Amino acid sequence: MDLYEHQAKELFGRHGIPVPAGRVATTPAQAGAIAAELNAPVVIKAQVKTGGRGKAGGIRTAAGPVTAEVEADRVLGMDIKGHVARSVLVETATVPFEEYYAAFLVDRAEGGFLAMVSSQGGMEIEELAATDPDALVRLPVDPVAGVDAETARALAAKAGLPEQAAETLEKLWRVLVAEDALLVEVNPLICTTDQRIVALDGKVTLDDNSAFRHSWEQEEHADGLEARARAKGLNYVKLDGEVGVIGNGAGLVMSTLDVVAGAGAAPANFLDIGGGASAKVMADGLEIILDDPDVRSVLVNVFGGITACDAVANGIVTALELLGERGHGRPIVVRLDGNNAEVGRRILSDARHPAVRQVSTMDGAAGTAARLAAGA
């Protein structure tokens, strides 16, 4: 479960990590009142579970209560990559002297934990890794030994962070362990002009399997794509790309995301319809994906097993009938393989739906979806 920034910072505060003073507002009037209480210039930050808030205009500064109310009114209701800002974090504006990056995460590839720290914070970590990989220190963390004070000091020194940042790194590791987190990230972690280390932002992903040990509740909004998908019983995660992806089985969907990326496009979502690829499930999935304004093409990648491909094909045909004109706007690439694949392909061919293109291989289907998303 991803936490909102204000939830992550509340969690940081429990573990002694300094964060700016602030509270959450759901109306412009509340934002103004919080700014008045803080009695200082503030930052209004959209609370959405996606990146790119600043570039989208979801982070604004305000000199006082009146300006805070105006800026909050601009941010509330803003759509940022399919996530609608229904609340804002109003917090004291903190001027950084230096900005850093710090994260601890589960490294699935190595079956352990990984620390990532850099003296260059405030930018997308993917961009930093691509443009200046030497600026990002990566250090495997022994799950038994963990990160003690000595390890934290060594990590800070290697990354070029000031000595006082080591204590915060140690506490961030404690957050990961104590809260059963899969990811704890601060970007930027700052040093102020008076040499204080402050977490100016926060991103935390908790392990859903540990929910019984914790009290965090899902804080979703009724019109968010992920919330709507959850209400329909769909396993859906919004991503930042342009190719919508539907598959049956988490492993197959993850592989599909990789193949789409390898074809030069970016997946817009993770959507696993599981084994019950009925017409209703398919219609619900397509509805969610086609309501995402970032989606330019859709890739349906199904391997027939318990649910045969002819049932999946009938589900797609029925789903497109149910969606009507909404199913015509963007191309839908379908790859069927496995149980009754030939029958399923014939059903789709006979339907002659103008939005549907069939491709027999996963690589070919991903390449076709990528080209269509690019307008080729």
Rank of each mutant, 00 (worst) to 15 (best):
D337T: 05
S119D: 12
D132Y: 03
L136V: 15
E91N: 04
V243S: 08
R296H: 09
A319V: 08
L76E: 03
D132N: 15
E37P: 11
V281C: 10
R74V: 02
G249T: 01
A373E: 09
L11S: 08
E124V: 05
W173Q: 05
V90S: 03
K171E: 04
S87A: 15
L89C: 02
R352W: 01
A227M: 06
P293H: 11
I332F: 14
S87G: 14
A145R: 15
A115N: 13
G224D: 15
I289R: 05
R335P: 06
V66T: 14
A72Y: 05
A229I: 09
L257A: 03
A181Y: 14
A181F: 07
K232Y: 08
E110N: 15
V175L: 12
A166Q: 05
A72M: 09
G160P: 10
H83T: 11
T368L: 15
V359Q: 14
V253L: 01
A229C: 10
N39P: 02
E150H: 10
A36G: 13
T193L: 10
V75M: 03
R346H: 08
A199L: 06
D310G: 05
K45E: 00
A135R: 15
E37I: 11
V42C: 01
A211I: 06
R296F: 01
I190H: 13
A374E: 12
V243G: 06
Y101S: 08
V243R: 01
G344L: 09
E167V: 02
G32R: 10
A250V: 01
L11M: 11
A149E: 14
N187C: 12
I288D: 08
P20T: 02
P331G: 07
V302F: 07
A72W: 11
R326T: 01
L139C: 10
D294K: 15
H6T: 02
A229P: 07
R326L: 00
G262D: 06
G338K: 01
S210W: 03
R196C: 01
K81Y: 10
F97Y: 10
M1V: 03
P28Y: 11
F113V: 07
P188Q: 12
L169K: 07
P267T: 03
G233C: 06
A265W: 00
L286W: 12
G57N: 11
Q195G: 00
